[in-house]
Nucleic acid binder design. Structure first.
Length: 478
RNA sequence: GGCGCCGUAGCCAAGGGGUAAGGCAGAGGUCUGCAAAACCUCCAUUUGGCGGUUCGAAUCCGCCCGGCGCCUCCA
């Protein structure tokens, strides 16, 4: 498969450093609030990559951290009158809930920054020893950017002639270079209030944000990882700083591929609380949207393209997901016709292969979806022509192809699970459907249509077929 | 100001030197008591505008217009 590497700005073939085992690190949420739909676009792409790597037969060590100590988490805890851990726990749990809602495969591990403080201290000591970091008069330990020649290679920013250099103000006076960044910060009163202080050779304090990811990544995955992911905003300075720290400490290349996910916009504007277009997953669920439709929407554009998140888009996605659910059900329920496989079986295999090839091209989901819809249309056409039946071998091949595609898309089972009805409800619906059948038998269409309309308002769709009336719970959006 | 990205039909969205994938919506049709679902047909001589390179450009180059991101611990 090929992936686009932000560092070299080229798309090239990806092979794991260790055959069959891929080491991936994705910058995770800062747990100071509920993650929003934009955050989840990025994480949905993590899940997409995770699933596709597994489709390739790789074992994947996929680490997604929780940043549970930084300015925002500390401020949030202080405002809530809680200890840091008490405050962040809520949002850690919420993230894991939302991830499950959106059908994410469990990641290999979710390290919390606060669990890696000793490793961070040791990491800083190595950097100080190597002359890459220094203790400043204010008690902070800073990374010395000028000591790292390759600084700026990833982002094209941060050269010593950069305009940002002018950004020197009072708080930077203790730095040797304005680009230097904190690895360790001395304890402030608010830090002590919420319990965000740890001991170190430089006194009580807490780690700098950039350091956290370098330490968790190298601790869990080794000095050189295969793929490092993040939102596009993290390219500078976060990822630039991660490279500088990690490579200075280990002497090894840090990440072989850097993938950056483009931000989504909402109604063509940047998402922000002031514009009122700030959505969380749970809010969208409360409005009645299907989790599978949200997932579909987040994945439907290429990850390096801007994605405009709209209600219309969610409605489109709802329809697409419903069509897939209907399709799988139709194939599963199809009557069996005698004989062996026809041309349908090899065609299904070809479409699955095309689907995989598209994803191999830097996770090109839109192109992959074209293969999916071609499969759907060809099989539906064949079913129509054959009066709704198909050969067993064909059906198995089609279902295998569909399962192979959905192993990456992950929407069909997710959609089915949100369409379950309670048993009692089922009896009531069936009774109404039976009553309608009686009415139809006597050509009392007024009654029949009234029942159908009533059920429609509950999201129950009726279909009169040659084998009788079938009913299905569908999703049509809020 | 510095660095970078984007502009494809009503909407969403691929392609990225060889003659515009796919989905949604819409129109007509098959099926149906009527529907629904499904299928068939139609739906961009054209890819923000103007030039240029080329046998050939949506794809390359230049300029212009419009939108956006990063440079502030926002995914």
């Amino acid at each position: 498969m090929n992936l686009h590497d932000s560092l070299t700005r080229e798309t090239r073939r990806f092979e794991p450093l260790r055959p069959g085992r891929v080491a991936v690190y994705g910058c995770g949420p800062t747990v100071y609030d509920f993650a929003h739909i934009g955050n989840f676009r990025t994480f949905a792409v993590y899940d997409l990559l995770h699933r596709h790597l597994r489709r390739h037969g790789h074992e994947v060590d996929f680490v997604v951290n929780f940043t549970d100590v930084d300015d925002k988490t500390i401020t949030g805890a202080a405002n809530a009158g809680l200890l840091l851990g008490e405050h962040t726990e809520t949002f850690v749990d919420a993230f894991l809930d939302d991830a499950e809602t959106l059908g994410f495969l469990p990641f290999s591990s979710h390290p919390r920054a606060t669990a890696y403080i000793p490793a961070m201290v040791a990491f800083i000591e190595r950097l100080v020893k190597r002359g890459s970091a220094y203790l400043a008069a204010d008690g902070s330990v800073y990374y010395a950017v000028p000591s790292f020649d390759a600084y700026g290679r990833l982002s094209g920013k941060g050269g010593d002639d950069d305009a940002g250099r002018a950004r020197i103000d009072a708080e930077d006076l203790d730095k040797r270079d304005p680009r230097d960044f904190a690895l360790w910060k001395p304890a402030q009163p608010v830090d002590r209030d919420v319990g965000a202080v740890w001991d170190s050779p430089w006194g009580l304090g807490r780690p700098g944000w950039h350091l956290e990811c370098s330490v968790m990544a190298t601790s869990l995955l080794g000095d050189t990882i295969d793929i490092h992911l993040g939102g596009e905003d993290l390219l500078f300075p976060h990822h630039e700083n991660e490279i500088a720290q990690s490579e200075a400490a280990t002497g090894q290349p840090f990440a072989r591929f850097w993938l950056h996910v483009k931000h989504l916009k909402v109604d063509a504007r940047k998402m922000s609380k002031s514009l009122g277009n700030f959505h969380t997953v749970r809010e969208l669920l409360d409005e009645g949207y299907d989790p599978a439709a949200i997932r579909w929407t987040l994945l439907s554009a290429h990850y390096r393209s801007e994605l405009n998140f709209t209600r219309d888009g969610l409605d489109d996605a709802t329809a697409s997901v419903q069509r897939l659910v209907d399709f799988r059900r139709r194939v599963r329920d199809a009557g069996e016709t005698p004989g062996g496989a026809t041309e349908l079986a090899p065609r299904a295999g070809e479409h699955l292969a095309a689907f995989g090839r598209a994803l191999d091209r830097d996770l090109n989901v839109p192109r992959a979806l074209a293969a999916l819809w071609t499969l759907v249309r060809e099989v539906n056409t064949a079913l129509d022509a054959a009066g709704g039946g198909m050969a067993r071998a064909d059906r198995e091949a089609v279902l295998d192809a569909l399962a192979g595609m959905d192993a990456v898309l992950g929407v069909i089972d997710l959609a089915e699970s949100s369409r379950k009805v309670a048993d009692t409800d089922e009896e009531r619906v069936q009774a109404l459907v039976d009553a309608r059948e009686q009415a139809r038998a006597t050509r009392d269409f007024a009654t029949a249509d009234r029942i159908r309309d009533e059920l429609a308002t509950e999201g129950i769709r009726l279909e009169d077929t040659a084998e009788g009336t079938r009913w299905t719970r569908i999703r049509t959006g809020p």
